[in-house]
Structures are given as structure tokens and as C-alpha cells.
Design a protein around this nucleic acid. Sequence first.
DNA 1: CGGATCGAC
DNA 2: CTATGTCGATCCG
Length: 868
Amino acid sequence: MDDMKKVANSSCNDGVLLRMGLNDNKAGMEGLDKEKINKIIMEATKGSKFYENELKKDQQVNQRIEKMMQLKEKITAQQLLKAQLQVDKLVMELEQNRNLSSTIVHIDMDAFYAAVEMRDNPELKEKPIAVGSMSMLSTSNYHARRFGVRAAMPGFIAKRLCPHLTIVPLNFEKYGKVSKEVREILAEYDPNFMPMGLDEAYLNITEHLEERLNWPEDRRRFFISTESTTGIGKDGMNMSAKFNKAEVSSSPVLFEDDTSLMDDNLEQRGLSVENSVVFGTSAEEVVKEIRFRIEQKTQLTASAGIAPNTMLAKMCSDRNKPNGQYRISPERLAVLDFLKDLPIRKVPGIGKVTEKMLKALGIVTCSELYHQRALLSLLFSEVSWRNFLDISLGLGSTHLEKDGERKSMSTERTFSEINTAEDQYSLCRELCRDLAQELQKEGLKGKTVTLKLKNVNFEVKTRASTVLSSVATEEEIFTVAKDLLGSEIDSVAPHPLRIRLMGVRVSGFLTEEEKKYQQKSITSFLKSGKEIGSLRLQPEKSNQEYFTKNSQAPHRGSFFDQKRAARQLNRENISPNKSRGKQLFHDDNSSEDFVEETKKVTDLQNSNVCKIFTCPVCFEKQSSNNLEELNRHIDECLNRMCVKDTVEISKNYSSRENTPNFLPQLKNEYVDKCQKNKTDQLAGTDQSASVSDNSANSNTEKIGQIIPDKSPREQQPSNLSDIARNVCMKQCLFPKRISQDNEDDFGKTEHTEGTSSSCSFEAKEDTVLVCPVCNSEQKTTNLVSFNRHVDVCLNKGLIQELTEKEDCLTKTDNMENFNRAFSGDLSKGQQCTNPSQGAKRSGLTASQSVSKKAKSSHSKHTIKMFFK
DNA sequence: CGGATCGAC
DNA sequence: CTATGTCGATCCG
């Protein structure tokens, strides 16, 4: 759907209604200029309830801006200077950890729905069309865009802009089919590609590029089907397919990788066989190949962006659309140059409101965003300003994160006014019914029900209620929803509640485990698991506290998760489990895993359940009439597990196919490093390290062995990243300690499953551990105290690093050099604002991870230095 | 936790 | 006449 929606909504404001270039009347086709478009929209809009509400929302934004401005007034030069220093420290660190090694591609189908409709109905070609309804359009073709017809615009307004406009109803089934065809192609280049809706996707083609280097030419050859060129390609206008040129071309075979950055040199591409094309091995060539294949297969064109991270790739795909591509070469200066004059609104995550706020500060382009970094750090939340900083530096995720599990499900409907309670209740029931059906499809049960209402003045309200026992059926949901609705009806009584939309959402889903324990069995896990329980749970706290607080958190992918997952994978041949990775900056609630389990157990105790139990440890079914017997079995299992420890799990995981396994890798690294350790005998001062097993008892001889990491500064400019790495390692091996850390690069995604493993992490015998940071021997009986020592050492290290950087900063002109990259003037904007928007984009770099980690867990001092 | 808001498709 | 539907994230109280 391109990005047309971004601008389409601004009809009421000073709205940028058109994107550049779409508005010029070429080829004798009529169209409208900006002014006329605005005028028509305004006439159709003003006086409407909708418009009134838009004005109201606008006022609220203005108030927000005003508040920010007041805040800004109070900022002293002193504060600003200090902020500047601190932010720049961070900038240097970010800069040092900039990762340009990935090749990310963003594919975006051009005017997708409209293009599909045009393809399937030739009569629509050449005509301005839009897909949607009289009340809302989803997209329009490029012809219609000349009249200002955009996605997210109501059809009736579009009709006024363009009376000849043909509005085609949505046909999702069809789009889904086409989308699937496209995805089949994409999967060949990155099996883990990430679709975003039906018409967009991110690919990480880094690996593909490597493999491709060894591919014979024939493997890069594609034959041109003449059929497809009778489609969109041939009839000119915007759609003239670039690949037709290749068809006509007859240049000799070109074996060499064409690394030229010039786009569209297809003429020079080799045609070794009539009607075939050979694509090169560069990223550009790969993407041209992808687009070529998409067009051949679907007769639809796509635009694409190639860059070192997702944020940049997305912005690149916008650059040459439709039917074009653009690459930012993986060089720092290329990135900064791309951003220099780029309006912030083009950045994914910066919407209308944020744009307006930043504009109030005089910030319109990304380089201005960079120049105002100090001010921004004082006016916005940390999440926000760090996001801004990432944007202005051109940093983003360099890997594609798997979708986590769904967090909510909802359904809502707009209708002409409904104002009788009776109708409202029956509508509500209907929504609940639909929702229940969908929930059932995915086997979900939630604890929170949210009712959404929009009154005839377009004011939106939501009312939520969370219940103790989860809901899933129509009746269960409705029971909760109807009360919420009742309250709202009462609240306006004796007036009727006049609404134009109602929606119902269910969230707070039970995890897989919770569901299983709910149906299955295990009556007295709480009792039997007492020992481990006391380690993971603080008995004096109630379950309730754990639900809400997740105060002290045992972590992601509990031991039980892993066993269960492994078992499930063995049974059904399912592909890799969903990662339970949590978003950065987000509280990790995995503690629920365990808590919920125990809760279920108590629930079950009260009800009479079957007598077949599934052991939570070995997952063998146990038939038993008495709980003690079961408990004994579980205890035995637990003991076995404690003894066998991670090695066992490791095996377990490596035996699974198609499943990313982290633990074995760790093990290997560990072994490698141990060997290195022996041979190298190096006693570096700044080495960071990894720590091994925390397994109890039988493995004590391994406990705490260290792996000094030889990382000369020449190679690794900052040992912060080393430390980060090791912290991550430690997280995997010291579940308890990491439980306080909320995020880390490694643990976040597919690796989560392998992270926490043990049910016992207290070393029982006196053990000598070598601190991975200071390299000194530490005698200890328990890992907690050892960890404390490591933390202290880590803090020392961090502080030292920072001090060095500070020196560097003040003594050298590094920052100046850096700033020079943006040649933009240092003209300061004079106002300020306060947006607050999502930073889904940025994956933390290693160093970020460290600082974040340091903050969240231990080194408060360090953090102070960092952030204030 | 609940409610409002933003942003993306 | 006629201004969507669905989801995730963040912020604030």
C-alpha cells in the first residue's frame, strides 16, 4: 500500500496532500494540482462531525506541543551542554558498534490491490481506480493519485476529486493468493523472510549473497515468458517494465558481477540464450532478479530497497517507486548522506503527530534530528530520544526478528448510528461470537476483555476488564463485555448511547503451558516442586503479585518450556518453535510461566481430575492413584535432570532438526575457548570472558571455568562489546543472575529456548571460580556471590571504558569529524515538543545492550554517567 | 491494570 | 448518505 496513507489523512490540516511528482499532469492526462485538491477536500470535509473531531484532536496535539515548549524554556545552557556530552558519548559508542555487514532488502508491491484488480480486469487499465468502498479506500492506482485519490481516503471524497473514479470492492482472497505467489519467490532468497501485510516483506539476503558467489551462471538465468509482458509491461505509461529492455537487448554475456551502482543497466546484462536473462551476483542483481521473477509470475511490479538494516531498506524502497529499486551501499558515509536531507516523516515509526512535534522544534530532516540530539534527550522519554538518535545515525535492526506470539485479538464494526440498548447488546453479542470463533481457531484464551466504542461524534472510548479465569467462548466474553457496555450506557443515562462503532478485544492470553496444564493434569506440582519452587519463587509473595509485578523473574523459556517444546517437535514435525522473544525495552513476563503453572496446579487440586498425570519433567504419562507416588516420580526426575544438566538439554536440542539451537553453540564456543585458554595462557587485563556451566553436583569440576577472550583492542576497538557478549554468555549459563536483565541481543529471539536451563543453580561444594572480568580466582560456595563479584568487576570495566571515552571525547576532535559528516548547518531550531513513539525498529547493539543491562541490573553509577 | 494515543498496513 | 479494521507499543495515572 505504499506509504500513501501517511499523507492521505492530513486532509484537514495544512496537509501535504501530494507526494512530489505525482501531481504533474503529463501526457495530456488530466489531474488536479495541490491547491484544487485541498479545496475540494476541505469543502467535502468541513462542518462534518468527523472534521470537528479532527480539529479537537489537533488541539490536543497542540497542547502537547505547548507543554513541551514550556519544558524547553526551563532548560539551561548548562543542562544542554551536559546532555550534549552524554549523548555524544553514546553516539560514539553507537558509532563504534555500527553494523554494516548485513544486506537487508525491503520489497514493496506497487499499488498492490489496485494493480491486482487492473491485471484481472483489462477495462480498468488506463482508468483511475481505487480499491475499497464509498466510505473508505484501501489504495488507488497511480492514475487516480494524480487527482489526489489516496489510500485511507473515503470513497465519496475521492469521487469528488475524480468523478470518473472507478471504485472496486476489496477482494482479499485474491490478494492473498497473489501474495502467496510472491512469497514463494521471496522464500528462495531468505527462508526466514518477514512479511509485513500482504504487499510488503523484509529479506535478509546476506547468506544468499555468499552462496550465490559460487553459483554457476545457469543458476542465475531466467527465461522470459512472453505472456507476462503482454500484461502490464507493454502498454507503457508508468508501468513500462524495465525488463522489456533486456528482452530487446543483445549485449554479450556478462559473467562478471556487476558491482556498478548504476541502476538499470539491464541492457548490459548478458543474454546468453535467446529470451533469457542472467543476473549477476551483487545485491542489486539479486533484487532485480527478485523483481523480475515477481513480475513474470504475477504480472505485477514491485519496488525494493537494499540497505544494511531494515529501517534504511524500507526507506530505500520508497525512493524509486513505482517499479524501481535503490541501494544504500554499506558504508557509513553513504548512510549519512542518504539521511541528510531526508524528511523525518519518511522514517518508519514517525507519523503525523511526531512529525508535527518535531517540526515545532525546527526539526524536519534527519540531519536536523541529529543536530538537536541533546535537546531531544531532555525533552523526550529515553525510548523516544534513543529512537531518534538511532534514526539520525541510520541505525536499525540488522536481522529479522521472528514474530512473537500474538498478544491480542479483536473485532470491530462501524455502522450507522445505533442508539438503543437492546440493539447494542445484541451487536455486542454478535461481536463476541465472531471473536470467540477466531479465538478458537488459534486455540487462545485470554484474561482481559476490552470494549471499544466510538460515538457519533467520532470520540473513541475503550473500557477493559481482566478476569481471573480466562475467557474464550462467546458466552464467557459476552459476560464481561456486556457489563462494560452496561456501565457505558448507564454513564450517559438518561440519554441514549449513540454509537457508530463497537469493538471487542481479548488480550492477556494464556501461554501454551498454561493451557496445557489447564486441561491436562499434574495435580500437585506445587508440592513436589517445592525445592525448586523455593528457588524460583519467593514463597512469601502471593501469586497475584507475580502476575502483576514480575518482580523477580525466572526467565524466558523455562526449563519446562524447553522440554515440552522439544517433545512436541519430536512428535509433530513442526518447524521451529515460535520464539518467545520479548520486545526490547519491554518487561519480560516470562516469570508467569512458572507461576501460572503453579496456579493451575492449585486450581486442579480443587477439582477432581483424571488419574493419568503427565510428569512435568520427563513428560511421561504416569498413572497413579496417589499424589505422593507422583511426587516421588517427579522428584526423581528432577534429580536426574539436575545431575544431567545442560548437556542433556544440549543433546536434546541438537537432535532436533530445523531448529535453531543455541546451547550447543555455546558449548562449542566454550570448548573452543577452553582450549585456547590452555594454550594461550594469556592474562590480559581487559579481557572479558565467558563462564561455563553452573550445573550443580556432578559437574562441579566445570563450574566457573573461564574463557578469557583474547580481544586485542586493535581488532575490537571497544571491549564493551566483548563484555556485552560475555554478559550474554553468562546469561545463558547463570539463569538466576540474568533473571534481572530484561533484554539482550542473543536471548531475545530464536535463542530464547536455550537460555535458562537448570532447576538448581547453587553450587553446593566449595568451588574456585575465576572471574571472567578481573581474572582472579574467587572462592565461593554459591554462584550468587560469585555473580556479585563479577558484577562489581563489570562495573569497574564499564566505568573505565567510559572514562577513556570521555578523555577521547574532550581531547580529540572525533565528534567534530563525525559531525562533519552531516554538512548541514548547526542552525538550531528554537522550539520543542514531546512525541513519544515506538522504537520497534532498533535492535540493540551489543554496547547498547550493555548499557541497558548495566542500568537495569547493577551499575547504577555507570548509568548515571551515561544518561544524566 | 486501564485508558488514550500513535503508527503501520 | 458516506471517514476502516487489526495489531503492537508507549506513556501516563
